[in-house]
Design a protein around this nucleic acid. Structure first.
Lengths: 284, 284
DNA sequence: GTTCCGCATGAATCGATAG
DNA sequence: ACTATCGATTCATGCGGAA
């Protein structure tokens, strides 16, 4: 088993990415600093300036992404003056003008978001995971993320009715037909574009930006082993850590020294652990 | 108990709404024809023309909505040429320029979404429920939509007999009636902005685009009894039917004669049923 | 009366083929 | 090249009738 490589950089991804060649990464997945939050980072970007700040960095990402690669952007607009700000919508439109295709919008449903109540809104329990691509054709390994089929199938497929045995056209002309008998012995189904992952809140020092399951799911879906993955706003380094665990190569960039060192140590730790596991494996 | 009023109009809401005064409705909730679908209705609006088609109608809606009222827009963009079309994003931005505040975006998670498999995407299992307001201050009755928490509540709720549940629903039309909510009361929490409802599949005749539970939830949240509710694209009339059940006044508009007559008969039926129940109640 | 179980239904999307 | 039509694909649900 060839071990995976993990490179961590300190700096602005706008500069660091210049060191990387075109068409290098299979997947870019990141949770960028939200507007006006993390004021230490990038000087705290104002909502109104967010798109202009993001675009030059997205241009570099476009360049280093493989032609069949995917860019997953985990983001959620904040409420400003009682309104949802539109910078994310404007960003999507601007990225399309830059050449990106807006292929899909996944919803990440945060199952255990913290309790609370405001006079004019409920708890925000979801974030956008925007999928962008360079081409209509891109690499996607759908079988890697299949889920168990619903309970209905157990009873339904036990005994097939007559209409189930042949293709049954819908009566209302919706063009929809099915052949249930094709589903015999099927135990897994393809998932939807709504993802249910709990947030991890045990990390006191560093606010967990996303749970491990989220990048893991997209990494399974869009990469195979030894592909290169980039997180240009690495934060606490979850993407890089998961990449290591899944035997993918990865690059992490963060502008904060504090984050840089955190990711460094987290990934070094795993590197060491993997080596130990390998040694142990070989001994056995 | 004063009975509620329900008015159904046939025509384009752009024209019909002119008959209504300013600041009349407490809630506008609707699922307009999506781009390129329902070709019989409004001739099937092209995605690129959608915003221009919608805006003049939204202007009338703005006028007839009360200052503290709410507009809920249920919509989802379609995939065009392998990409998500941006007309919904553009619509949000355009509505803001018209004076609307984009207060919140709820996610409706469709648990039983349309099946299908494609090389480049998964099944679409969610739709947007966009909340717009005229002012930062608006009427919101958060306590009306509290939900039971904890697994024990779920399992006990499941064990309730169907009659208990049915009697309950017919009485209040709200899922939980007094007797049940009494012992649940202590274990209630505020919901989030992610709503989980399955679409209703009717075995026969007309199907509703959204399940009753969806308008019901927003009606509970944003109106009280005898408030006026508008659905400018009434379709099969789910909004008006639920409004009646919940003792709210409502106006429904649809351009199709077929829909107009359907809604007419559905709401007339309920009107009759309510009258009968009232008579019976008074006799007792 | 309750529970079980069959079954029609759906704001879909893609790729190929035809005009 | 650009648009229109057609066939193929796929789950989970509530209903109504049967047990």
């Amino acid at each position: 088993m060839k071990s995976s490589e993990t490179k961590i950089h300190m700096g602005d991804c706008l500069d660091i990415l210049k060191e990387y060649p075109d068409n290098y990464f299979s997947l870019i997945i990141t949770s960028p600093p939200y507007a006006d939050s993390r004021t230490k980072t990038y000087g705290g970007i104002k909502p109104d300036e967010y798109v202009q700040w993001f675009l030059p960095r997205a241009k570099e990402m476009f360049r280093v992404l493989k032609k069949d690669g995917t860019f997953i952007l985990n983001i959620k607009e904040k409420a400003v003056n009682g309104e949802r700000h539109t910078y994310v919508l404007e960003l999507i439109i601007a990225l399309r003008k830059q050449g990106w295709l807006w292929t899909e919008e996944f919803v990440w449903h945060k199952k255990n978001c913290f309790p609370g109540k405001w006079p004019n809104r409920f708890r925000d329990a979801w974030e956008r995971c925007l999928q962008f691509n360079k081409n209509k054709k891109f690499s996607m390994y759908q079988d890697a993320v299949m889920v168990p089929i619903g309970d209905w199938a157990k009873t339904r497929l036990k005994k097939l009715s007559n209409t189930d045995r042949k293709r049954d056209e819908s009566k209302v002309g919706s063009g929809f037909g099915k052949n249930i008998s094709n589903w015999l012995n099927r135990e897994m189904a393809y998932p939807t574009n709504v993802l249910h992952f709990a947030t991890e809140c045990f990390n006191r020092k560093h606010s967990a930006v996303f749970p491990k399951a989220l990048p893991e799911w997209f990494i399974k879906l869009f990469t195979k082993e030894h592909d290169w993955i980039l997180d240009p706003f690495a934060g606490s380094g979850t993407t890089n850590e998961i990449s290591q665990l899944m035997n993918r190569n990865s690059v992490g960039i963060d502008i904060l020294k504090e984050n840089y060192e955190l990711v460094k140590s987290r990934t070094a730790q795993y590197q060491r652990r993997i080596c130990e596991e390998q040694k142990q494996y070989e001994t056995n």
